[in-house]
Design a protein around this nucleic acid. Structure first.
Lengths: 138, 138
DNA sequence: TCATTATATTACTAAATAGTAGTTTCAGCT
DNA sequence: AGCTGAAACTACTATTTAGTAATATAATGA
């Protein structure tokens, strides 16, 4: 698939070679794959719906089905994915199974993305307004 | 069948029943789809590789190809996706096209996820160690 | 104009996956 | 045991998409 690594390429054209300290740049391909897999879990609206349904505490599968309007098999599959990713946790109570968010960090993450997207949309709207203004001038 | 009937269960371990104020819960399905689409852009290791390649400033397509080892058409397609999502921006300079990260928020996001994942792995490792200890006891 | 280099696009294949119908497993109850 | 409801599992289909080869477009220089 991926071509062999061309490590011989001269990366001397570094602009900020001094600030090559930390962060995402030094991550191995394996680490990047793990990050990608984490993002992939959150990249479906249905799963985000399910996460929302668990925002205020544990919910059993039936409650999640009602809250989201998704099919039973579908919800079960998504819950398995969320649990395997460590985002949700499973707890059986009699015949019911309660799921809850295992890591509240997910909400923080979603809020950050939500804020960033709203800023982005505001900017796009402003640009559209500017374009309309130019049309009115001509 | 109704959710209220099961309220008698001892799910009194509500952590934030009173804090039903804001956040992801009140998001419309459309907003959730937009969030999911944003996460989807970051849910491929190849695109994260490309993001990494732009960490230290603008890079043209050839540089990104060399840094990532991906194919040319593939890189071009991923760059289009990143640009359409507002994550990267495009700037032509003669025959070369330089791309850069349009929103440094992406790096912040990736660092947060990376930290969360490493904590998660540490916990899993500790649990494995505990299991090994139990085996040694029996 | 022609050649070259850089980037984008098109058409295609293979793989991944969301959703679903049907079935199964399991817990509690009579 | 038999019944019932909750949740998980098993194919299966349809859609999406990553990657690639080939081609097209664009800019620059001879």
């Amino acid at each position: 698939m991926t071509a062999a690594t061309n490590r011989t390429a001269d990366m001397s054209t570094h602009q900020n070679a001094a600030t090559d300290d930390c962060g995402i740049t030094k991550l191995s391909p394996v680490a990047l794959s793990l990050m990608a897999d984490f993002f992939k879990v959150l990249s479906e609206a249905s799963r985000l719906q399910i996460v929302c349904a668990m925002k205020n505490g544990p919910r059993n599968v039936t409650q999640i089905i009602e809250a989201t309007g998704l099919g039973q098999a579908n919800v079960s599959k998504h819950l398995k994915i969320l649990t395997q990713a460590g985002i949700a946790s499973r707890q059986q109570q009699g015949p019911n199974v309660y799921y809850q968010i295992a890591n509240p960090f997910v909400f923080e993450l979603c809020d950050l993305v939500c804020d960033s997207l709203s800023v982005q949309f505001q900017q796009q709207t402003q640009q559209l307004e500017a374009l309309k203004g130019m049309g009115r001038l001509s």
